[in-house]
Nucleic acid binder design. Structure first.
Lengths: 169, 169
DNA sequence: ATCGTTGCAAACGTTTTGCATAAGG
DNA sequence: CCTTATGCAAAACGTTTGCAACGAT
């Protein structure tokens, strides 16, 4: 069984909160439970959307205010979240995008090139296909990233509406 | 029919060389056929492997020598190759990776996290699955990127061999 | 003659680093 | 008290830009 699949199973099976899981991870590595780390877990799991480092920082208190966390610490902590299995990350347009891994079902994405929305979908068949192909090539799967680029339903409707009214694209 | 699929069909159907196709593309957009562009097409299509901008630049003549092409021009031209349908690009570890699109069959990748090799595989089923899922979500497909991360056969064999001899991971 | 292209240097946006200070265990 | 974590400033990284000189059409 692959690591990717393993952590997925944990995610749905186990009933720990993200903070609990992270503290366990930190303790197992003799790392420290700090105010910043606690606060960031809380912030990151308060919303379900995909986000990048800047979006997270924007939602955090500014310098001089309570619970301020510096930019380097945000980056360092995001990496730890990925290691701890709380988040997954992938790259889009030159920056890292994060999403919940822990306690969140496995899925893949549509990426709309017009509105830049990331939409999720699930496909059990895809996992089967992945594992089959990997087996044929004797490749041990750890995880995968599948992004379908194109135009989402909303943008499709909008551009056909515009085409009718004016002659903008 | 999606744009991605369209250019694939062209690629296998048409019998133009990459340079011919690129010149046609340039002419259609009233862009110019320069020494640098000609030279870069030649270089890029002289090898079949995946590459990034730095790897390409390393294989090019140095400053002061014949056929020197500056870094910005390499970047600008790689973008044009993608527009022209000669290359496709995707992001890996924070940089853009390019591969032949024109005259090369559609495929996806295994990425070995140990040796960092990119291995190709083809799956007709994957395309069908992609189009099916997209249809269900009324998403108009332009292209996709599917990367399976894990450990390749060679690295698997190597690490089991080492485990037997010593007790290195 | 025009207008796209090049090379240079400098900027860019994102992420990482070295280091002194702070704080968890 | 020991060591890890933090914030700061600065660097690093891959890539892009403004601009003057150059060159294709």
């Amino acid at each position: 069984m692959t690591e990717g699949t393993q952590s997925q199973l944990d995610a749905v099976t186990v009933s720990q909160s993200p903070i609990e899981r992270f503290e366990e991870y930190l303790q197992s590595r003799k790392l420290r439970i700090t105010d910043q780390r606690r606060f960031l877990v809380e912030q990151v799991f308060s919303r379900h959307e995909h986000f990048d480092a800047d979006q997270l920082i924007d939602q955090l208190p500014r310098k001089g205010h309570a619970n301020y966390v510096s930019r380097p610490t945000v980056y360092r902590t995001l990496k730890e979240f990925v290691d701890a299995g709380l988040l997954r990350s992938f790259e889009l347009n030159g920056r890292s995008v994060y999403e919940h891994d822990y306690g969140y079902p496995e899925h893949d994405h549509f990426y709309c090139v017009k509105c830049h929305a990331l939409l999720e979908f699930q496909s059990e068949q895809l996992i089967q296909l992945r594992d089959e192909v990997a087996k044929q090539h004797r490749f041990r799967v750890r995880s995968h990233r599948f992004i379908i680029q194109g135009v989402c339903d909303a943008c499709n409707r909008q551009s056909s509406r515009m085409r009718r009214k004016q002659d903008l694209v």
